[in-house]
């Protein structure tokens, strides 16, 4: 048995080294760097300096953080409303149709954020965009550019996360006991009524966990806000990248990353804590 124990440890050794060196150490470095001081000669030196966090607590960055949270919450609500019925119908499709849809949704889900941003840039442009359709419907006089704008960012982000929302909700529907809906219908409930009184309540925990996941996912988007929005529409993730790559201010980028980590970790933690408290 002890021989087996050693064999197992040997088996896990390479993976442990990789995870130690490339997950734990890098994350620890971010924490350390967030407390570093900026020095003129060496770029930055490790210290116990809270000035990077102090800089975050200025109205400019607080406003950016609040904007990011508000934007992500709107994206979650809209994508949930759009995707929820589809995920429900998807679970009822025949195996073949379902597989085709799943393949397409996965293909769109993994499509680069750069390409999603590009396609919405075209859709929202003056020359060949959606505004031309609005003009031909007689709603506007002449086509107009819809970017950069907060609406543009919102539209791009919702499109980006819709496939995730569908795939996160879908397992709950596939597990749902469909005879419950039939029972409600036999007892005289209308389709809409049975949907809201049977289907929605039984998938409540899936709604919560999918929303949280999509919230964190949206918080991580870096390209859509840059391509479809002006700098005033940038989210925390974009600011982190901007500080690290284009301003070479790694300590401040790290402090912002710690804030983002606490924010996303906090949201995940709170929701799951609340969820657990209710079921217990």
């Amino acid at each position: 048995m002890s021989e087996k124990g050693i064999a197992n440890k040997l088996l896990l050794l390479p993976s442990s080294l990789v995870i130690g060196a490339f997950v734990i150490v890098p994350c620890a470095l971010v924490l350390l760097a967030s407390l570093a001081s900026i020095s003129d000669s060496e770029g930055w030196v490790f210290a116990l300096d809270l000035s990077n966090f102090a800089r975050f607590f200025s109205w400019f960055y607080i406003e950016r953080a609040l904007f990011s949270i508000g934007l992500c919450m709107m994206v979650v609500v809209i994508s949930l409303l759009l995707a929820y019925p589809f995920a429900y119908f998807l679970s009822g499709f025949s195996a073949k149709v379902k597989n085709i849809w799943l393949i397409y949704i996965l293909a769109q889900l993994t499509l680069s954020e750069v390409l999603i941003a590009f396609s919405w840039q075209i859709l929202l442009s003056r020359k060949s965009g959606l505004s031309n359709i609005l003009v031909s419907l007689g709603l506007f006089d002449k086509p107009f550019a819809m970017t950069p704008s907060a609406t543009g960012v919102l539209l791009g982000l919702v499109y980006l996360v819709i496939p995730f929302m569908i795939l996160l909700l879908y397992p709950a529907f596939s597990r749902m006991d469909k005879s419950l809906v039939e029972a409600a219908r036999t007892l005289g409930a209308s389709p809409l009524r049975s949907f809201f009184t049977v289907v929605v309540p039984t998938t409540k925990s899936a709604i919560i966990s999918s929303s949280v996941t999509v919230f964190v996912l949206t918080l991580g988007a870096v390209i859509v806000p840059q391509v479809l929005g002006a700098p005033k529409h940038w989210t925390l993730s974009v600011l982190i990248m901007d500080q690290a790559v284009f301003n070479s201010n790694v300590p401040f980028a790290s402090a912002l990353a710690v804030v983002l980590l606490l924010l996303s970790g906090g949201v995940i933690g709170t929701i799951f804590f609340l969820g657990k408290g209710k079921t217990a």
């Binding site: 982190i240 690290a244 790694v250």
Partner: peptide, 11 residues
């Protein structure tokens, strides 16, 4: 959010 790991790898 991937930007956190990206920064961690950069460091």
């Amino acid at each position: 959010p991937p930007v956190i790991m990206a920064l961690a790898f950069l460091l």
